[in-house]
């Protein structure tokens, strides 16, 4: 056997087990999800093939549209807010030396927390008087309390806040690494030209950070589209209420699959989720390429 051949055999030996694993635990389940989405199946009985009926039913289901709307609301609020906040903090942190390490740690620590645990902490904060911290403080100042989780309009932002809060640390650290990677000479040249701070930001910093921004947009978009832990733990009985005001797609899938055991219906919704993620990723990769 030639050396090349021998090495090829070694290579296949090394990756044989992983290949079997990826086929069995990634590819086969993916195909399975597609095929289940075309059936009516309550997990116990027989699968009945019903074509695209599940998708048609979803199309006509107002609750599903509400859920999709919520999901995009999480995305459209979450991504810009978290990116702007983290950029501001990273940019400011980058300029200071005194207590730099401690401050950075304070911003980063929430990233290491367990979403479930923090969801309960925030849920407690949001309670009406006489329980919740925020409303207790407002009450002491004589201000009428906010409804937070008990309101159809305030609940979604209230559930989103801990998700933004927890992700901020990661984005700040990545932004800071991106800022550090910008050659110092660019700034010096700009200073000699007498450019204002704002112009430096617009013409040097932001364009130079473009790959970082695209990367963080992709990562956080996917994260907000898949929000689940916070909603499940912060809403009454994990229902995504009140009146479905906070229910995102993943929670809707969970309820259909593992509480009502409507497997076909749930799988159809996962196909929808998959399609949305695919489209968003493709769009964002395009943006990155054009840059």
């Amino acid at each position: 056997m030639s050396i090349d051949k021998k090495r090829a055999v070694t290579a296949w030996c090394f990756i044989s087990v992983p290949i079997v694993y990826f086929i069995l635990v990634r590819f086969y389940p993916t195909l399975d999800a597609f095929s289940i989405s075309l059936t009516d199946w309550n997990i116990v009985g027989k699968k009945t093939y019903i074509g695209f009926d599940n998708f048609v039913r979803l199309w006509h289901d107002p609750v599903f549209w509400q859920v999709l709307g919520n999901t995009f609301e999480y995305l459209l609020l979450g991504v810009p807010i978290s990116l702007i906040l983290s950029f501001i903090v990273a940019h400011s942190l980058d300029q200071i030396r005194f207590g730099h390490g401690v401050l950075r740690a304070c911003y980063f620590i929430p990233f290491l927390t367990t979403a479930v645990a923090m969801a309960w902490v925030w849920r407690w904060f949001y309670q009406p008087v006489p329980v919740g911290m925020i409303n207790l403080a407002l009450g002491q100042m004589g201000i009428k309390q906010l409804d937070f989780l008990r309101s159809t309009t305030e609940a979604l932002p209230a559930v989103l806040a801990p998700a933004i809060w927890a992700g901020l640390g990661f984005q700040i650290v990545i932004f800071m690494a991106g800022l550090r990677a910008i050659p110092q000479s660019y700034y010096e040249a700009a200073k000699i030209d007498g450019a204002s701070g704002f112009r430096i930001l617009r013409e040097i910093t932001l364009p130079q950070l473009r790959p970082t921004i695209v990367f963080l947009t992709v990562i956080s978009s996917i994260g907000f589209l898949r929000i689940f832990d916070q909603v499940y733990n912060m809403t009454q009985e994990g229902e995504g209420g009140p009146l479905n005001a906070t229910r995102p797609l993943v929670l809707h899938i969970y309820k259909a699959a593992f509480e009502r055991f409507e497997m076909g219906m749930a799988a159809a919704q996962t196909v929808v989720l998959f399609t949305i993620l695919l489209i968003i990723t493709i769009i964002q990769l395009r943006v990155l390429k054009n840059g």
């Binding site: 008087v129 006489p130 409303n135 009450g139 100042m141 004589g142 201000i143 009428k144 309390q145 009985e237």
Partner: peptide, 16 residues
Amino acid sequence: DRAGNIIQVGITIGPI
């Protein structure tokens, strides 16, 4: 309380 929030309910309401 001072802000007009209910801090003690006459009767509990919890349909759930």
